Simulated assay, not measured.
Amino acid sequence: MDAIVTFFENLTSVQKLIWIVGCLSVFWILEGVYPLKKHKYNKWEHAKTNFVLLGSTILINVIFGLITAGIFLWLDTNNFGLLNLVDFPVWVEIILAIMILDFMSQYVVHFMLHKIPVMWRFHTVHHSDRHVDVTSGTRHHPIDFIFRETFALLGIIIAGLPLAYYLIYRILTVLFTYFSHADIQLPLWLDKAISYVFISPNTHKFHHHHVMPWTDTNFGNIFSFWDRIFGTFIYEDTNDIVYGVDILDAEKSDDVLYQLKAPFQKGLKSAEYKG
């Protein structure tokens, strides 16, 4: 375990980028071989919008990275946080760290993004994607992403995480983000089996359905048991899923300027979804 911790302590930005590109590429290829939905759309044109939004989140990540570095120094100096109150084996602490961060910076903030109107306005950009595939995992309005990163910082402070544990979590959350958004069809028995512990591709697709109540379900990113514990888990027939959201203009799903400006519009009118 010490070797694993040391590896992640020294993880470089280039290695992180390779991981992101690698995960995107693998699931992009799998989508072409085992698609869940056979969409008739220009995949590269669709990806362009999501990649532009990915660029904005990378820039925000740089800023938050500087803040996070300062927090890790403070935590190390002051021994603050839950993990500093116990003396568990490293592998147990890593699992606890992943669970705490997945709960705080994924489930809790995601639930709030749906329930607090001002936060929901920005989160609609993620839901406005009419063709959910692996690139949809990169689709976040910059302010939506700032909300998410703020809760990640809170999770780090509450848990008192060392840097290596946090980076292990980030690597895993990238994998599960692209895995759950990928337009891939696993055997139903396998997808359901995965969904008892983790967020499977089918599980997350219900969250991207264009109307309630499915839109407000399956908030998790890595673990599905948060949804099971808090009663927000569903698993139905994926054939009934229609992607999009009725608060933004469905015809401008791939218009990046519209997506960036839309949350600031006063009195957003409900757009009739034309699936």
Results as ranks from 00 to 15, higher is better:
residue 58 I to K: 03
residue 205 K to I: 05
residue 76 D to Y: 12
residue 263 P to D: 06
residue 156 I to K: 00
residue 63 I to G: 13
residue 14 V to S: 05
residue 176 F to R: 03
residue 258 Y to C: 00
residue 218 N to D: 07
residue 90 V to H: 01
residue 198 F to I: 06
residue 228 R to A: 08
residue 213 P to N: 08
residue 254 D to E: 13
residue 41 Y to C: 05
residue 121 R to Y: 08
residue 128 S to W: 13
residue 154 L to E: 01
residue 35 P to N: 00
residue 9 E to P: 08
residue 264 F to Y: 15
residue 169 Y to D: 03
residue 102 D to K: 11
residue 48 K to S: 06
residue 183 D to F: 01
residue 60 I to L: 10
residue 91 W to T: 12
residue 69 A to F: 04
residue 72 F to D: 10
residue 106 Q to H: 08
residue 207 H to R: 12
residue 248 L to D: 09
residue 142 P to W: 07
residue 208 H to P: 10
residue 124 T to S: 08
residue 194 I to D: 06
residue 29 I to Q: 09
residue 124 T to R: 13
residue 106 Q to L: 05
residue 141 H to D: 03
residue 4 I to T: 15
residue 142 P to D: 01
residue 257 L to H: 09
residue 175 L to I: 12
residue 247 I to A: 03
residue 15 Q to I: 04
residue 220 G to Q: 12
residue 134 V to I: 13
residue 60 I to W: 01
residue 187 P to A: 14
residue 36 L to W: 02
residue 81 G to N: 03
residue 104 M to I: 15
residue 135 T to I: 02
residue 55 G to F: 04
residue 202 N to R: 11
residue 127 H to W: 11
residue 232 T to M: 00
residue 252 K to R: 13
residue 126 H to I: 12
residue 252 K to M: 00
residue 54 L to C: 05
residue 129 D to G: 09
residue 66 L to P: 09
residue 21 V to E: 14
residue 216 D to E: 12
residue 186 L to T: 14
residue 109 V to N: 12
residue 111 F to L: 02
residue 194 I to V: 14
residue 225 F to D: 08
residue 91 W to L: 05
residue 81 G to S: 08
residue 54 L to E: 02
residue 175 L to G: 13
residue 263 P to I: 06
residue 70 G to M: 05
residue 7 F to C: 07
residue 204 H to V: 07
residue 255 D to I: 01
residue 99 M to I: 05
residue 29 I to L: 13
residue 37 K to D: 04
residue 214 W to L: 10
residue 229 I to P: 01
residue 156 I to H: 00
residue 254 D to Y: 03
residue 96 L to S: 05
residue 274 K to N: 10
residue 243 Y to A: 05
